[in-house]
Amino acid sequence: MQKFTTFTSIAVPLERANVDTDAIIPKQFLKSIKRSGFGVNLFDEWRYLNHGEIGMDNSKRPLNMDFVLNQVKYQSAKILLTRENFGCGSSREHAPWALEDYGFKAIIAPSFADIFYNNCFKNGILPIVQDNGVMDELFTSSDKIVINLDAQSIYTNGKTYLFEIDSEQKRRLINGLDDIDLTLQYVDDIKAFEKDYFNKYSWL
């Protein structure tokens, strides 16, 4: 996984609460057995005017120009602004895969669904929680946003906002650490645990 560093970008304002992972990446694209290439189908049903399927030439599909992601000024955005409970519903990791593949590196919202929040960290995406007051300020500003994970800060429009993040998740993101590699350092702990565990719960 890539190391997460400080970066600056404009943000796309997606003015919706309870955006579910079915909306982020519709089910037909989950039939892929690959991990990449989901970005073109991010928010597919909102982004295009026709029905999308795997294998279509998306460059030929009619765009819904009312959908914020399609507006010219947001084309290079790496930050998504949205409302409460983003990523609710299905546990599909295809949702962060699609966001990452599209180019998003951070999502700022008042709250995230648990499974989605966790899945973001596995894919180098930083989910940032800010209260509704700050979100309203961010939604009304069109300035670039500077995100500094090390300092746990967002800087925009002359103001700095701090955010909370689990210290261990932060360490793993900054260093681009792989969870499995980390865990396999503890093989002895796992084996010792198993010995006691299967002795105590002998029916397992």
């Binding site: 057995i33 689990d166 261990e168 796992i190 645990f193």
Partner: peptide, 28 residues
């Protein structure tokens, strides 16, 4: 609990159910 590291806990998993949609990339 297998071990606790600061805010994160490594827990042992007894059972994993697998289906075709969310597993191909894991096996890969």
């Amino acid at each position: 609990i297998v071990r606790e590291d600061s805010s994160m806990t490594l827990i042992y998993i007894d059972r994993q159910l697998i289906h075709e949609v969310t597993s191909p990339q894991a096996f890969e």
